[in-house]
């Protein structure tokens, strides 16, 4: 047991929580985190702070570097998993290195989803999934107020919109189906929520009213950097165009493992996949829900952190089921502003 090698793919809140739990439960085993990031674990929910002048990434780190040395957690940064071979319990990194594991926890989370018709404009849009992207957006916005066009408008984007407005920027939301994702908002309640957004200072353009986005173009010289052209011919100028259409599980490398997949990795309530040595936690997995009789996603900071802990516990001999404890309701407060449990992460 002491020589066991636990490998965690992904260094978000889930993976990090899992690593800490593993170390607590098994002081001797080897723990490796493989991540695409160049940085150690930082709280992505803090990223809007870059608009408040917090630009030193070291201030975002949740643990100092020594924490990983002290806990003997090997962190493989800049590393992409190319393949997992469940038969031999070996995963291969894109740089052709084989890493054997005894247990594997997939905690890669999700990556921003972009509708097919906008895919070609990806280079002209800015994501907000990492520190680097956040800094890039912050640098792209002119001091003293820039303009951001937000497409879609999931809860991550709307959270950012709050900070941008607070810090003197102008946000125009091109609202559509994914607005408020992952909240399911009924057609009847939607106008009220949109109105709440406007109360909060977001300018809203309903996608349906302009026929959808036709094109995103480089701004002309002397004008803002980007131009969003709608199908009805109308245009929006912006310094930055950001897609917020919700996220999709990042599981490409799991293709050949044979574990069951729907949109995410399918896991039982104990967070194990259909392979006995592979577990999944966080935004990447769909967990069997007895009540709903389906595999479903659970989002939110508290949920994904809890998943990391549960998975790690079960990887080291535990047998606990994940229980969601985060309220999922979207509401409007007394001042007419939106309140979402997803925004509570202090």
């Amino acid at each position: 047991m002491s020589e066991r090698h636990h490998v965690i793919v992904g260094m978000g809140i889930t993976g990090n929580e899992a690593a800490i739990t593993l170390r607590r439960r098994e002081p001797q085993s080897r723990i490796t985190i493989v991540t695409l990031a160049s940085l150690l674990f930082y709280n992505r929910y803090d990223l809007p702070q870059v608009f408040r002048g917090k630009h030193d990434w070291r201030e975002f780190l949740v643990h100092p570097p020594a924490f990983y040395d002290d806990n003997r957690i090997t962190v493989r940064r800049n590393s992409r998993v190319a393949n997992v071979d469940p038969l031999n319990k070996v995963m291969t990194l894109e740089h052709k290195e084989d890493i054997p594991y005894d247990t594997l926890l997939v905690a890669t989370g999700g990556r921003g989803w972009i509708p097919e018709e906008l895919a070609e404009f990806r280079p002209l849009m800015q994501g907000f999934g990492s520190f680097e992207q956040a800094i890039t957006v912050a640098r792209a916005l002119p001091e003293g107020g820039g303009r951001v066009v937000m497409l879609g408008g999931d809860m991550i984007g709307l959270d950012l919109a709050r900070t941008l407005i607070d810090t003197g920027h102008r946000v125009t939301l091109v609202a559509g189906e994914q607005t408020f994702w992952p909240h399911q908002v009924s057609a009847e309640r939607r106008p009220a929520f949109v109105a709440a957004l406007e109360t909060m200072g977001v300018e809203v353009v309903e996608q349906d009213s302009v026929g959808g986005v036709a094109q995103i173009a480089q701004g002309a010289k002397g004008l803002p950097a980007r131009k969003v052209v709608f199908r009805d011919g109308s245009e929006l100028m912006a310094d930055v165009v950001m897609p917020f259409y919700g996220i999709q599980p990042a599981i490409d490398f799991m293709g050949r493992t044979g574990v069951d997949v729907e949109r995410g990795l399918l896991v039982n309530p104990e967070l194990r996949t259909t392979d006995a040595a592979i577990w999944a936690a966080g935004d990447v997995c769909q967990i069997w829900s007895q009540e709903e009789n389906r595999y479903r996603f659970y989002y939110g900071w508290r949920n994904v952190r809890a998943m990391g802990e549960v998975a790690a516990g079960n990887m080291t001999g535990g047998n606990d089921a994940f229980v969601a404890d985060q309220d999922e309701k979207l509401e409007i407060d007394a001042e007419g502003r939106l309140v979402s449990p997803f925004w509570e992460y202090a």
Binding site: S38, L40, P65, A66, F67, Y68, D69, T74, V75, R76, R77, N78, S79, L93, H95, K96, E97
Partner: peptide, 16 residues
Amino acid sequence: QGHITGHIRPGQIPYG
């Protein structure tokens, strides 16, 4: 010894 990313210490910045 494996890829260098396995040896870069947490405090150092890797650039591939």
